[in-house]
């Protein structure tokens, strides 16, 4: 059985990826981690005719439970072949109003939870090879006043992905990093509340790129920070 673990499936890019993963039957079982159980169960219903799913209740702001959950997934499914770190958090603030709690929560969800998921998953994946994909952001590459916690956390994701590409290639594990630009998600609404979401890239378009990367067809794009941007024509 081919097994994929993912976060962020409740909405936005993660939800679109979960549905496309099921439609394309890239994996037999998708283990979904998150805290919004209502949203996760709803997405599972859409996936279940095509693949097996399981939902694992965890608040990624408290990632300490991750080792235990990954062990349980491995016990239940027998292997872990893919990990998708898609969940993201932001509370954009200028420096002088950025609290330590803001930084901690942003780093817990965007950096520490992915780090723990990768470490625990690799304990099993290193014997079989596999794929890991981290969703960063163009915000991690270009400075933007007021986005300190989010931008710096995404820069960490880009760097972590590049380091791990080198470190894990010995095991036949490919590490991908994608940095979507402006994409119509709830998180984007927090960063740019005045933007019309219909004028920018849609989650389904990012999901298509991600599903291509983690399919067996892709073999050459690991180790790069892959920017996903769509040229949008102005209205009118």
């Amino acid at each position: 059985m081919r097994v994929c673990i993912m976060t962020g499936a409740g909405s936005g890019i993660g939800r679109a990826v979960a549905i496309q993963l099921a439609e394309q039957k890239l994996y037999d079982h998708i283990a979904i981690l998150g805290r919004n159980l209502e949203a996760l169960n709803e997405v599972c219903k859409k996936m279940q005719p095509m693949v097996q799913t399981s939902v694992w209740d965890i608040d990624l702001n408290s990632p300490q439970k991750i080792p235990q959950i990954v062990e349980q997934i491995h016990e239940k499914c027998g292997s872990i072949d893919c990990l998708l770190n898609i969940a993201g958090y932001t509370d954009p603030q200028p420096l002088l109003t950025t609290s330590l709690e803001n930084m901690e929560m942003t780093y817990n969800v965007n950096v520490f939870a992915p780090f723990l998921l990768i470490r625990e998953t690799v304990k099993y994946m290193k014997k079989t090879g596999g794929k890991i994909l981290n969703v960063a952001s163009t915000a991690g590459m270009t400075p933007r006043p007021g986005w300190l916690s989010y931008s710096s956390s995404k820069a960490a994701v880009i760097s972590m992905s590049q380091t791990l590409t080198e470190e894990l290639s010995e095991y036949g594990i490919k590490v991908y990093c994608v940095s979507p630009g402006r994409c119509a998600t709830k998180l984007r609404q927090k960063l740019a509340p005045n933007e019309d979401p219909t004028t920018i890239m849609q989650p389904e378009e990012v999901a298509e790129v991600i599903c291509n990367l983690i399919s067996d067809r892709e073999n050459c794009l690991d180790g790069q920070n892959i920017v996903i941007r769509k040229q949008i024509k102005p209205k009118g």
Partner: peptide
């Protein structure tokens, strides 16, 4: 040796 021989091999 690690970079050229070991990496990328299972």
């Amino acid at each position: 040796i690690y970079r050229e021989i070991i990496r990328g091999r299972k």
